[in-house]
């Protein structure tokens, strides 16, 4: 009987010990969670800035600025077109008043050289376009550097006038990329890119199709489906450059 009572007490003590251990461990877990929550709440309060700010505001502001600049760009380009037409009318008026002299005909020639008059003749037409197969990557799109390389080969092939999507390439023309578009003569262009070149079409075609030329572009044409075609044309028209030139730093000798 005494042994049984002792056994029962011993078993109860063991149960109590187990129970208190469980309580201790649960409390320990509560303490850990409490500390973690406390730390997070402090971090949260510290993260919230004192001033009330809208996280989207800077982005909205940037987009608004871009739109304002874009509208301004359209108006300025329209104004340049108008001034260019006015300049042409003035030139016609000067000619009609019999003011033509040696300088005037020299001026006409220099304007033609500089790309300030419409020209026509035989040559080549090149089309460059992004690949329409597979996921978009650096290798599947047409880059400004591709256009620069093609234009350089066309000059090497004896081109006498070049335009890309009706933008005449002149001495001051830079070909650059602006995000997803190409910027030529301060005008944004997007694909497909049609490059028109007047000149010796046989020589230009031979240079462009040579295995030594445009190796990077041709690799992407083969592997990634970038579109690149060159066609000979008997009759092509290239519009004049819309704008004018000025010399700022240099002086003619």
């Amino acid at each position: 009987m005494v042994i049984r009572i002792r056994e029962t007490r011993w078993s109860q003590t063991k149960k109590m010990q187990k129970l208190s251990l469980k309580f201790v461990s649960i409390r320990f877990v509560y303490i850990i969670i409490g500390i973690a929550m406390g730390l997070l709440i402090i971090a949260q309060f510290r993260t919230v800035p004192d001033r009330i700010t809208n996280p989207e505001t800077p982005k909205l502001s940037l987009r608004e600025t871009r739109n304002i600049l874009y509208d301004e760009q359209i108006k300025l380009n329209d104004e340049i077109k108008r001034l260019s037409q006015e300049n042409q009318q003035l030139n016609d008026e000067i000619k009609s008043k019999n003011f033509i002299n040696v300088e005037m005909s020299e001026l006409e020639w220099q304007r033609k050289l500089a790309g300030l008059s419409d020209v026509s003749g035989r040559g080549v037409e090149i089309t460059l376009n992004d690949s329409d197969s597979g996921p978009v990557s650096e290798d599947t799109i047409v880059h400004a550097s591709d256009l620069r390389d093609v234009v350089n080969y066309l000059w090497a092939g004896g081109a006498e006038a070049i335009s890309i999507n009706d933008q005449r390439i002149v001495a001051t023309t830079a070909i650059d990329c602006v995000v997803n578009t190409i910027l030529i003569n301060n005008v944004k262009l997007s694909n497909p890119f049609k490059i028109t070149a007047i000149g010796n079409s046989e020589k230009m075609m031979a240079l462009l199709s040579s295995s030594l030329s445009l190796s990077d572009l041709k690799k992407r044409v083969k592997a990634n489906g970038v579109l690149f075609t060159v066609k000979s044309r008997d009759s092509l028209k290239i519009k004049s450059y819309v704008g004018s030139f000025t010399v700022i730093s240099g002086q003619k000798q």
Partner: peptide, 25 residues
């Protein structure tokens, strides 16, 4: 008119690289 033509001609000859030029750079 002559002066204006001369001025434009001077600039175009520099742009077309048919005349020498000096200046800063």
């Amino acid at each position: 008119l002559d002066a204006q033509i001369q001025s434009e001609l001077r600039d175009l000859k520099i742009i077309n690289a048919v005349s020498a030029i000096n200046g800063s750079g």
